[in-house]
Computed example of a mutant assay.
Amino acid sequence: MIEFENVTKVYPDGTRAVENVSFRVEEGTTTVLVGPSGCGKTTTMKLVNRLEEPTEGTIYYDGTDTRTLDATELRRDIGYVIQEVGLFDHMTVGENVATVPELKGWDRERIDERVDELLALVDLPPAKYRDQYPTALSGGQRQRVGVARALAADPDVLLMDEPFGALDPITREDLQDEFLEIQEEINTTILFVTHSIDEALKMGDRIAIFDVGEIVQYGTPNEILSQPANEFVEEFIGDDRTLKRLGLIRVEEVMEPVADGTQDGRTPDEAVSPDANLESALSRMLQEDTDTLSVRNGDDRLVGRVTRERIQDTQRAQVER
């Protein structure tokens, strides 16, 4: 879907922002570009929709050199979400979401249906929010509108530049979870920029770690956690690599299933979802001062149990690999 081939970006003052970068973003996957400030990750993203132009090398979009495509049309075909959101405050939420479909000449009925569909998708009921103005919304709600606007014209590719970076930790985590659910529905190809390795591990199918304009490692979250390429990657990940790897394993994978109809007498506070990760399950155990949690599905039906012993066994197995 998107491919970088030996791409370098040098600014007129001689700054080499990106140096000989090559990687491929597979269709329907999320690739996260992560690294410290000034490492070239945002410049790399902007090269995709030609907000920046490469000095050397080639960027392919569906096999076509982006330099042969009309820049304006390319940007209308690619969704773009930024940290500052960039909503038009003089326009309603619905009008903001409708911006690109109107530019592409969609008919009114189709636009209205798409606006309502997307507001519902990002958990902003259209009857309540369509006619509100962005200034009346919270930061998290504005960010949701930004995501809806970026998705409005059914883009094949979505660029997300620190989309949740300005939000408080709780809102940020909630939106991350919601967006992962949205991605399962839309199956869009996503290039996601962040400075947070924890966010990268949570959001990415593939991760590109940048250092001073170069990709120093590209791989799956598990590959990066289990086999960091060098000392920079090790330090960037942090000392808790084993705990972070628990964040990649779902409770469902290690729980002890129970027979349908089994009761355990535990309160909802002592339960986790099958889709929760082992890191969060362990945290819940410490919080509740318990060695066992119920595993309940969306219907609050008991489907299994997960124990601290099982999590610790999994953790030891991760260390031995």
Rank of each mutant, 00 (worst) to 15 (best):
V145I: 07
Y129I: 08
M255H: 10
G298D: 14
V233M: 08
D107L: 03
F179E: 00
T15H: 09
N20K: 13
P126L: 09
T188I: 12
D156F: 04
L51M: 14
P169Q: 08
L225R: 03
T30E: 01
Q183I: 01
R114A: 07
D264W: 09
V122S: 08
D65A: 03
V216Q: 05
L69I: 15
R142D: 02
E73S: 10
T8W: 05
L121Q: 04
P54G: 06
G79Q: 05
A136C: 12
P101T: 12
E253S: 15
V81D: 07
I209Q: 08
G139A: 01
V85F: 03
N277D: 10
F210P: 03
V10A: 13
V85Q: 03
D131I: 12
S196F: 06
K128Q: 15
T262Y: 13
D313C: 07
V18G: 00
V216W: 02
L201S: 01
F236K: 14
L33A: 12
P274T: 12
R316G: 11
E288A: 11
V258F: 12
V81G: 05
T66K: 06
Y218G: 08
D77N: 15
D177C: 11
S280Y: 13
V25H: 02
P228G: 01
V100P: 04
M203R: 07
A71K: 07
E117A: 14
R321K: 15
R110F: 05
I111W: 00
T171W: 10
E279H: 09
N187W: 01
V303Y: 10
G304K: 12
D198K: 12
Q315T: 11
Q141W: 00
E27D: 11
D313L: 11
L293C: 00
I2P: 01
G14T: 07
K244T: 00
A98T: 01
Y61M: 13
E162V: 07
G247C: 05
L87T: 02
V147K: 04
D112V: 09
T66L: 03
A150L: 07
G63N: 09
D13L: 08
E19G: 00
R108G: 13
T64L: 13
I215Q: 07
V212F: 13
D240Q: 15
D239S: 15
E84Y: 12
P274H: 12
L121F: 04
V85W: 05
K46E: 07
V306C: 11
K9M: 03
E223N: 06
A148W: 00
T171S: 12
S294A: 15
D62V: 05
L119N: 06
Q263L: 14
N222W: 15
V258P: 10
F210D: 02
R24A: 07
W106E: 07
A229N: 08
H90Y: 13
L118W: 06
M1S: 13
L302E: 08
V157R: 00
R108I: 11
E199F: 02
P134H: 00
E109Y: 10
Y11R: 04
T15A: 14
V32H: 01
V157Y: 06
L47I: 05
P36I: 06
T290Q: 03
T64M: 13
A281N: 05
G139L: 01
D313M: 09
T189W: 00
R310Y: 06
L248H: 05
D291S: 11
E53Q: 14
Q287C: 13
V216S: 03
E288W: 00
T220M: 08
K128A: 10
R76L: 06
